[in-house]
Nucleic acid binder design. Structure first.
Lengths: 156, 156
DNA sequence: CACAATTTAGTTGTGTGCAATACGTTTCCA
DNA sequence: TGGAAACGTATTGCACACAACTAAATTGTG
């Protein structure tokens, strides 16, 4: 629902009532807030997310990374090539199933994790809410996200 | 805060704890959910937001639109040119202050509003939450957004 | 008034997102 | 087992976002 006051019938088309705009605009603010810190590591925000996924478990396929981040190969393939060129990850075809490409970490990629550990706390402060509030908000967003994805899938 | 359980020290770097990822990923889902409906109007999601701003008040400067959507001229200028080419808006230099460009609606741009009125309700259903929940979530996100923007400004 | 600082758009370059499509590999099953 | 269907990745094309920069107009100040 686009959180309207429910008064005027046209209030549904007012920007200030749009939940979707709040999400869109906050997402832009997130990447802007991360940018200076990540630039020090030579990473963009989506690249950082890929690294986070790999720091949790090395040796994943493109598909596995894509499922965790909800991104397709059209986005990931060029992004992964940039991370490879930066010397942070490795890319090689699986010899058993040659459809798959296995992504791994280089020593430099592993080492970057240490330099990234300070970032979540700093960003957390910028959010300006308590840990509990953040946890609740995160849960609500993930529910909304899953609902949206379900409605998209249902339409196809 | 990246909503962690607060147990292990490295849990701050786990994707499942990231509030920022929830925001990022939900924003992507929002644009995907809007896409088929907006495509019928020949609009992208950011273009739709610009039209919403103009439906609320015609004759705005690029700067005014940018402030409402938190977008700069690097994003808006090409987007507005596409809307102009699509015949939905007009662009002309202000004769009083020639730094400014005034954006207005064409008849077709105004007419498109009617065709867009059904969208918020349909998307609202896809969110799968009540009007009250949406309103609360929107308010929390806008607070987080403003905090993020304030922290970015403070750093400069 | 002169002119430096500010304001407003536009331009350029990089990196996403995603639809549509292509292509080689694997799986399924008649 | 042969071939169609499904799968995993890559490619192409378009449209954002945003940093960095440019250019023109206006404002502020001595």
């Amino acid at each position: 629902m686009n959180a309207t006051s429910g008064k005027a019938p046209d209030s549904l088309l007012k920007l200030e009532n749009f939940l979707c705009f709040a999400i869109y605009s906050t997402a832009n603010a997130v990447t802007r807030a991360y940018q200076p810190r990540l630039a020090a590591l030579g990473l963009t925000y989506p690249q950082y997310l890929v690294m986070v996924v790999l720091w949790e478990r090395e040796k994943q396929t493109v598909k596995s990374i894509g499922e965790k981040l909800s991104l397709d190969s059209g986005t990931l393939t060029p992004l992964l090539k940039r991370l490879e060129n930066a010397g942070l990850i490795t890319r090689r075809r699986d010899t058993v199933d040659e459809r798959q490409v296995l992504i791994g970490l280089t020593d430099e990629g592993r080492a970057t994790r240490k330099r990234a550990e300070a970032i979540p706390l700093a960003i957390g402060q910028a959010f300006g809410c308590t840990l509990g509030e953040a946890k609740d908000l995160r849960a609500e967003l993930m529910t909304v996200r899953d609902n949206l994805i379900a409605s998209i899938d249902k339409a196809n």
